[in-house]
Design a binder for these strands. Structure first.
Lengths: 346, 346
DNA sequence: CCGCTTCGTCGAAACGCTTCGACGAAGTTC
DNA sequence: GAACTTCGTCGAAGCGTTTCGACGAAGCGG
């Protein structure tokens, strides 16, 4: 492994000159630069990241902290990661993903305090999230995906749930649906303060009320069985429902199965819209699901851009931004059966 | 940020003594140790990872290189990652995931040569994989998930496809099925030298021939539409088929949809077995899929253990191991319709 | 009680880089 | 052409650890 010393000796310049060629922090004549570059090439020189990091006090590594639960990463999260990695690369940083589990706050504290990471993007933020506190105390620059309850002091990027729900509801209402049930995450998830679940709940209530309709929400476990149970509950609460809006990517397969099981057809008897869903998952279902597609890759890019601006720029500016999901109409929504063809009230 | 110097001063010992307390490389008296530990606690000392890495020439960071395609990470891969992370933590290493894209071999070379990673686990290895060459040339300790064509010189952990296919076929044959179609990945994937696709193809041929049956394989695109097309092709080639064995987690939903579309019931008319599938995905389908569950978490653990042994132990031993998937019977397999109730040949 | 290990600790030299101050040489300003 | 800048380069001092050699102080066999 060649070091800077070797390069300097071969190019007959001082070590610092080699460093300046590499970092561009001071002007270097073209002739010298060429000599140094040639020496580097000849020796296949690669700078040692540790030494660089120690001397400059920055690693040029960004961390993406993602809780890995057993559900896995959907296409949405993957798009997010690739978008983030690309943006980091453009800014001259490496991105590493760290699968931090839920419990190990100490582990997180260690990771953050060891100065290995110049900055961090934190995914799946809860309304009250201890991890944010730990990271802030450790003084690590931070961008959130999602929002804590108190959004005032931090940078974040998040989905505009309000807008997303409003658009989904508008699509269904526009088709003529009046009885729309919202299938959310589980009651436990709601109670734990999971932002997306709470925000969509409120947005749904607001959107339906805005249309003069009654909001009905069902909490469903994150499983196919949970979806089946939720649909049963939905029919119990609103027997005349004609549309289901679902936030729960796992439960939705149970909902579809149960619908078919009851001899109801999608979309002729019941329309289904899936929220915050990737095209890949939407296409798995038969019929393919009309869905609100999440802006995964843009979300990742924006988060990293905000973080690097935070690091390279001098200011401690905040970046707070919401991105809506976009409606993609596929085969699972249609006008309700002819009873209300033009959206007349029942 | 307190440094070792601060700790040493407060504890009234030398810097090296503090280091020995931390690393345990030399004996330290109980009294001194306590003084040092107290000082550390008081100052909330956290060792600087860069300095440590520079001086010791090891970062205690392991990399998991995973190509991130748009499909996302299934529950299988997730289990793999969490298994690996847990094992790394036990061995005193951090695990970071690096989403290396397909094209950027230079990026990989840089990452590998900068000595930031003590060792690397490489996922989704192709039969002929340039990444392996790059990593080997950079001198990075390496464990593969999957195998290259020439397995002689490297450490790897992989699924025992032979055994897995044999067990799946045995299950179906045991139920009385004689006409079994294997739905593999796409022709393009096969042509690209994707090991699992090729190995299962050969294993399927061997297993069927071993039972005196004719092997029929269909290549399917990785999409629901691909699955539907594959099923049509299967019926064209083997009209009397009673069972489908599928390797393709995405296509299988199309297969199920098409089966239902043709008015055929699962499992009464056609049995379906999904290969290398996680329970979570298997449960999404209606009926839940009988599947060969991959040993994800064990695979990750074993890979990391092999790698750390490679690093800490002196020997340059190879670790080569195959793990079979386990059969989990759910609702998608049954005896074929009464025509052949006891497995009589047609 | 004398020479020998073993124990516990220290000081100093790396590790490979960045960055600061200095300093000739050359260019600019009046 | 004297007094300043700016340019291009160098040497040296860190950055915060680990690790090596050294060295008193005990402990021990004879």
């Amino acid at each position: 492994m060649a070091t800077m010393h070797d390069v300097a000796r071969l190019a007959q310049v001082s070590v610092s000159t080699v460093s300046y060629v590499l970092t561009g922090t001071r002007p270097i004549s073209q002739a010298t630069r060429n000599k140094v570059l040639a020496a580097m090439a000849q020796l296949e020189y690669q700078p040692n990241a540790m030494a660089r990091g120690l001397a400059s006090r920055r690693s040029r590594i960004l961390g993406l902290l993602m809780p890995m639960d057993e559900r896995g990463l959907g296409a949405t999260e993957t798009a997010f990661v690739t978008g983030a990695a690309a943006a980091a690369s453009v800014a001259g940083y490496h991105l590493v993903l760290s699968p931090v589990g839920g419990g190990d706050l100490d582990d997180l504290r260690r990771l953050a305090s060891q100065r290995m990471l110049d900055g961090v993007v934190l995914m799946e933020v809860q309304l009250a999230d201890e991890r944010v506190t730990v990271l802030q105390e450790a003084g690590v620059p931070l961008v959130l995906i999602g929002r804590t309850g108190d959004t005032s002091t931090l940078s974040y990027v998040d989905i505009d749930f309000d807008q997303t729900v409003r658009e989904a509801v508008a699509h269904l209402v526009g088709l003529g649906h009046r009885r729309i049930v919202y299938v959310n995450h589980s009651a436990a998830t709601l109670a734990s303060g999971y932002g997306p679940a709470l925000r969509t709940r409120d947005a749904f209530t607001a959107a339906m009320t805005g249309h003069g309709l009654e909001p009905v929400m069902i909490a469903a476990e994150d499983s196919a069985a949970g979806g089946r149970a939720a649909l049963a509950a939905a029919f119990a609460q609103a027997p005349e429902l004609t549309a289901v809006l679902a936030m729960n990517e796992t439960a939705i397969f149970g909902i579809l199965g149960e619908l078919t099981g009851r001899g109801l057809s999608v979309p002729d008897d019941v329309s289904v819209v899936s929220m915050v869903t990737s095209p890949q998952v939407a296409e798995l279902a038969t019929p393919a699901l009309t869905a609100m597609t999440s802006p995964g890759s843009a979300l990742g890019r924006i988060a990293i851009e905000a973080l690097t601006r935070h690091l390279d720029g001098p200011a401690d500016l905040r970046h707070q931004q919401l991105l809506p999901c976009t409606l993609e109409i596929r085969g699972s929504t249609a006008q309700p059966r002819s009873r209300h063809p033009l959206g007349a009230d029942q």
